[in-house]
Design a protein around this nucleic acid. Structure first.
Lengths: 219, 219
DNA sequence: CGCTGAACATAGCAGCGTTATGGCATGTAC
DNA sequence: GTACATGCCATAACGCTGCTATGTTCAGCG
């Protein structure tokens, strides 16, 4: 209809957006409280920039949540694919826990109370990587044929998130993570994997430091 | 030394304290934002009461967290002990999930970012009930003798908290909880229980509505 | 070149948790 | 029986929060 009108405007600088997100992530890492004014202080921009780029603080938190899932996805991508899919699935779970514990504050933001439906695609993309690994496990014949990859992915996620959450934001000490291999081994053998081969796969997949790239960023 | 002085004072009314945390719990259930002024509005007391009883809002949140663990403990107490300890342990996990999903907001408060060391005893008391159930499982000969009750309790908690957290504050739908029996069965058989008997025990323990007493409290 | 309209800066607003101040009820001491 | 000390609680103010209203600047098109 009247959509022939060509609107012109001063383009918003995408560098400001990433600058704000990175500064917010840095403040999160430094455990400084993130407030609108403290966020823009130091940068040249004013408080209004947060509104043009994120439509308020809620939008900033949401962007931070997305950033967390993006970094988790990048972390997953560093897990090299091996001929042993169970080892790979275990490595993904280990990477999940490593991500959660090297960035506990970002992890808290990812799962805090105000999860919006906007965030579901990001979470789904993360889950999808687990699903594919689970599918490879089944297709490789390690599991019974009736194992549903999505179910196994959710079950793996449950274990990973339970451990990460109880340690990162909860009352249990970091050693709790050592229960990971046992729980995953129990899950995988319940899906039909041979106990002995499973133990080897899980142990191989679990020890995978694969250092996170965010650990020493210049302040 | 100079402690011979006998201090006298007007006693603080404990009814005010319980009134405030019950009102806060009610507001939490109603999904109303809890603010200092909105909390005391309607009650006869003023904002200062929050400071005399809780030393500020942080103290109120902490009291609310304790209340959550207390109610969880009461919910656990309703799980009757049967001759089948694995059924009982499963029932405790089911009660945990039921508690988390009938009071999702309270559950969020229990595990939110600002967990204080003051809250650890409450969490430990909760865990202890799982530990005792796990010990009964092992002592009944259902598990291998080398199973450590504390480890099994933590592992059960991990599964329960992972499911509860992903559903109550996370991106997964309530049907996700149906993975509970499978995960617990995998865990218990990994500890040495007979697969068939374990399936029966878990199924019996899982279906246990045992309605929560907080569902219809007069406003 | 002038116009349009979005991006950004500044200033002010309502609301938040917190704190200073003062009245008043309460339990002890004389 | 009365006077006093003590600390609960109400009132008012403070600094801070996220947010919005208003004005200015500047990129892109006719």
């Amino acid at each position: 209809m009247a959509c022939t009108v060509q609107l012109v405007a001063r383009p918003k600088d995408p560098a400001v957006r990433t600058q704000l997100i990175e500064r917010a992530a840095a403040m999160l890492r430094a455990r400084e409280p993130i407030t609108l004014r403290s966020l823009v202080a130091g940068t040249g921009v004013s408080t209004m920039a947060v509104y043009t780029h994120f439509e308020g603080m809620d939008g900033l938190w949401q962007a931070l949540r997305q950033e967390g899932f993006t970094r988790l996805g990048a972390r997953f991508a560093t897990v090299a694919e091996t001929p042993d899919p169970i080892r790979d699935l275990t490595a993904l779970c280990a990477a999940y826990l490593d991500h959660a514990l090297t960035h506990p504050d970002l992890y808290r933001v990812m799962f805090d109370a105000s999860v919006d439906l906007e965030d579901l695609p990001a979470a789904d993309a993360t889950l999808e990587q687990l699903v594919q690994a689970a599918r490879r496990c089944r297709d490789a014949g390690r599991f019974r044929a009736d194992v549903v990859p999505l179910d196994l992915a959710i079950q793996s996620w449950t274990i990973g998130h339970g451990l990460a959450s109880l340690v990162a934001t909860g009352p249990l000490p970091p050693e709790t993570l050592d229960h990971g291999p046992f729980l995953l081994h129990a899950l995988f053998t319940a899906c039909g994997d041979d106990p002995h081969g499973c133990r080897v796969s899980v142990e191989q997949g679990w020890r995978r430091p694969a250092p996170d790239d965010e650990r020493s960023r210049p302040a």
